[in-house]
């Protein structure tokens, strides 16, 4: 489309937004703008397209303005006014729009005409070593705020938290705590170094049971499976966060470093409206229990 209509003066932009389906191809939600730009670079690498990429800032103003849609599309006229809009990008409808606005092209570009060097997702070490947790019903992502220290190491492992409907509406219910390797950092769990350990602290009058945990001891020397836990939470004040501290060894796949890491989060019980839903590939299956995006 770009090849056909750019010569007629049409500009094309992709705008990068929060992940629609965390875990798909092992990608996890970035915590910083720098990490979101790593996702942009990864998208460039995988797609090989020459279209210009922009990125929504971390407070997602463009995503909000587009009603939090995952793949919406606008055509803007030279005066900056909307000429066409649709919830889902649709190549045929877009082509019809552009033909109407700037005229048809003599020959449509076909996929065979392009040399798009598309690439697979990053490889990982062994997966399927640690069984996934069985999710209770009505689980959905809740707000996670990483405590980012200036000069600190990246969040090689990223927390995803979910709560069931009861937890999100009353403060009493089940919470999922999942630690996921970020594939863009090319790291793995080094099971000979020691398991991930975490603790949860609630405000006065609230309880979390259990208030922590640690990953399993494994014979497999390395793997890339998430470390997942379910806890019962009873919060007396839903505006207060749970404090989560985690310790793990971050070990890169190139075997150039293996370092102990302590990091912290604040977990809020409110629904993460940009967190979207898990849609897994063949190698990570648990979709049951998750509800559609709101």
């Amino acid at each position: 489309m770009q090849r056909d209509f750019a010569p007629r003066g049409v500009d094309f932009y992709y705008i990068y937004k929060p992940l629609a389906h965390p875990e798909y191809n092992n990608y996890v939600t970035p915590f910083t703008l720098e990490e979101r730009l790593m996702h942009v670079a990864e998208s460039k690498r995988r797609l090989g397209s020459g279209i210009t990429w922009l990125a929504d800032p971390m407070h997602n103003p463009w995503h909000e303005a587009m009603a939090r849609t995952p793949n919406s599309e606008l055509v803007i006229d030279p005066e900056g006014r909307v000429a066409a809009r649709r919830t889902w990008s649709d190549p045929e409808a877009l082509r019809a729009d552009l033909e109407r606005l700037v005229g048809p092209v003599e020959r449509r570009t076909m996929i065979e005409d392009l040399d798009l060097p598309t690439q697979p997702p990053p490889p990982t070490v062994a997966k399927g070593v640690v069984p996934r947790v069985e999710m209770p019903p009505t689980m959905a992502g809740i707000e996670v705020e990483p405590v980012i220290e200036e000069g600190g190491v990246p969040f090689y492992v990223k927390l995803r938290a979910e709560g069931d409907e009861s937890l999100r509406t009353t403060g009493n219910g089940k919470m999922y705590v999942g630690f996921h390797l970020d594939p863009l950092y090319r790291v793995h769990w080094n099971n000979e170094a020691g398991p991930v350990k975490f603790s949860l602290t609630a405000s006065s009058g609230s309880t979390v049971t259990p208030a922590g945990g640690e990953g399993p001891a494994l014979d497999e020397p390395a793997d890339a499976d998430p470390r997942e836990f379910l806890v019962d939470v009873s919060m007396s004040d839903m505006t207060q966060p749970l404090d989560l501290d985690v310790f793990y060894f971050a070990c890169d796949d190139a075997l150039t470093f293996c370092i102990p890491v302590n990091q912290s989060y604040r977990v809020y019980l409110q629904r993460d409206n940009h967190g979207r839903t898990i849609r897994t590939g063949a190698d990570n299956v648990p979709t049951a229990g998750r509800i559609p995006p709101g």
Binding site: Y13, Y14, Y24, P70
Partner: peptide
């Protein structure tokens, strides 16, 4: 960036 010419803006992500 979307003023002065026709412009197509598409939201997307890796997943």
């Amino acid at each position: 960036v979307a003023t002065g010419q026709y412009t197509v803006l598409v939201l997307g992500c890796l997943t």
